[in-house]
């Protein structure tokens, strides 16, 4: 009973919305708003394996490369900056400013500096999404537990052990928060960089359909982009639960107490 109820609650509204879209658009003669059935048919026709290999996989590869670059760079720099009060004071206003620049406007600049190749897109994705990771790591390292800090000092725990067990562990909830924001930004920058200058990729393909007035194919591309966003977010949540299980358990315990 409760399982049935929960399934109904979880699936009811999405099914209802899709059904409404399906019926409202059925037999649509509006060129720009095709019927959902047409869009789904176009989806199957458009995103064949060849097209996936030509457009989707390169996009995802650039996204992964840029994101991982930002993750490693952001955490490394964040630990360095967060560990020292003076370095932090020195860099804080600068980082606040760099973070406030909307990342997509950097696409033209990166094209000037390193051409229109894959390297530019990876760099611009990394540069665009590194700030939330970096700033959250700084905050996380700064807000580490003082007792743990002193314990480390007393037992002369230093180097790699201190980095792994004290600094990264204390910062990890904040790093994950930053990484989650960064993933959304990385996806945006990926699409934009391909819309502005590319000869393959999802953003390029979708804009190409729009310019060629292949409207159902364009709608299917929008659906695919949305789907990728949703899958990435779900994947991230899954990884987050695995990595931060200890933290949520600790927090829940504290609340009950």
């Amino acid at each position: 009973m409760t399982l049935l109820r929960r399934t109904l609650l979880a699936l009811g509204l999405p099914v209802l919305l899709v059904a409404v879209w399906w019926w409202a658009s059925a037999g649509s003669t509006d060129f720009y708003r095709p019927a959902l059935s047409t869009i789904l048919a176009a989806f199957a026709d458009t995103w064949t394996w060849d097209r996936v290999r030509a457009d989707v996989l390169p996009s995802l590869a650039r996204l992964a490369a840029g994101y991982l670059l930002a993750l490693t760079g952001g955490v490394a720099l964040g630990v360095l900056i967060g560990g020292n009060r003076h370095v932090r004071a020195f860099l804080e206003p600068l980082l606040e400013f760099l973070r406030a620049i909307p990342p997509p406007v950097l696409v033209p600049v990166f094209i000037l500096l390193s051409g229109v190749g894959d390297r530019t897109k990876v760099l611009v994705i990394a540069f665009g999404c590194v700030w939330p990771i970096l700033l959250n790591t700084v905050e996380g390292v700064r807000g580490r537990d003082e007792v743990l800090s002193d314990t480390c000092r007393t037992y002369r725990i230093g180097g790699g052990l201190r980095l792994w067990h004290l600094l990264l562990r204390s910062a990890s909830p904040r790093i994950v928060t930053g990484a989650r924001q960064a993933l959304a930004i990385a996806l945006i920058v990926m699409v934009i960089s391909e819309m502005i200058a590319a000869d393959n990729g999802l953003g390029f393909a979708v804009l190409q359909f729009q310019r060629g007035f292949q409207i159902p194919a364009m709608w299917s591309g929008v659906l695919l982009l949305g789907l990728i966003g949703v899958l990435l977010a779900w994947g991230f949540r899954w990884a987050e639960r695995r990595m931060l299980g200890w933290y949520y358990g600790q927090r829940a315990g504290r609340r009950e107490w």
């Binding site: 804009l207 729009q210 364009m218 779900w234």
Partner: peptide, 12 residues
């Protein structure tokens, strides 16, 4: 709906 990147709506 939340994780759908809004830039996907650009062509639309």
């Amino acid at each position: 709906l939340r994780p759908i990147p809004s830039v996907a709506l650009i062509p639309l």
